[in-house]
Amino acid sequence: MTELLRIEGLTVTPANAPEKLLVNNVSFTLEAGKTTCVVGESGSGKSLTALSVMGLLSSQLKLAQGRVIFQGQDLTGLGNEAMRQIRGQRIGMIFQEPMTSLNPVLTVGKQIGETLIVHQGLKGQALKAKVAALLEQVGIPAGRANSYPDELSGGQRQRVMIAMSIACEPAMLIADEPTTALDVTVQAQILKLLDELKTRMNMAMLFITHDFGVVADIADDVVVMFRGEIVESGPVASVLQHPQHPYTRALLDCVPDADGKKPLKPIDYAWLNEGVAA
């Protein structure tokens, strides 16, 4: 058990409204070789938590409190230049929409190569060979390095994003809803790929999702967020099978099951407000 990332008391507010707690006192840790899923509805603060870790909060938001300790170093005090050294090199990132995250006028090989040029100073044949190796690692023929993003399918684009994110062999990978825009069969392939890479490279993975099905497939640990706060966290089996918090139970109840045996139950927020207060 190697602790890789420790988030302590993370609090995010709008820059002009410090009383509004968008992320409220969030703490959890990530271990090497393990996947932690942060689950919640829109507005629960799950993406803001991930952005805070990467130091990518918009200028209209403020990290009001808390520390993000990555490999023993507090990231919250670092300047832009120092953070740039860490992002892409020691922390990889994948986002939801692969088409909007890729540059449409550059070949995918060029875009994967950018990371390697910036962080590792590779060039010429060595660069080409490394790009080819990365593409093969994510299951794309190396010849595709000369393709433009629009020539690839959604799943292939997400594989390119993954190749970029693991190019410098980061210790941690942050994935924000990486399969939400994909077809279900492609989603299954991408989840399998991420899981294999995590194990092979012994990465810690911070995986943001709203889908409990995805959580069940990929998570080792789960953090459930509601209105900016963590309501429950723990190993995946215990959270999914014996949820303790009423919100976790309610959220699980409104996920349709594939066997159609469980009746659908929408979340009763009024009841929940009382339940949380009690």
């Binding site: 279900v184 989603q187 989840l191 099905g213 996920v255 594939a258």
Partner: peptide
């Protein structure tokens, strides 16, 4: 078979 969490959640 590609439905996420099919086995685990069942």
């Amino acid at each position: 078979q590609s439905i996420p969490g099919r086995r685990a959640l069942a």
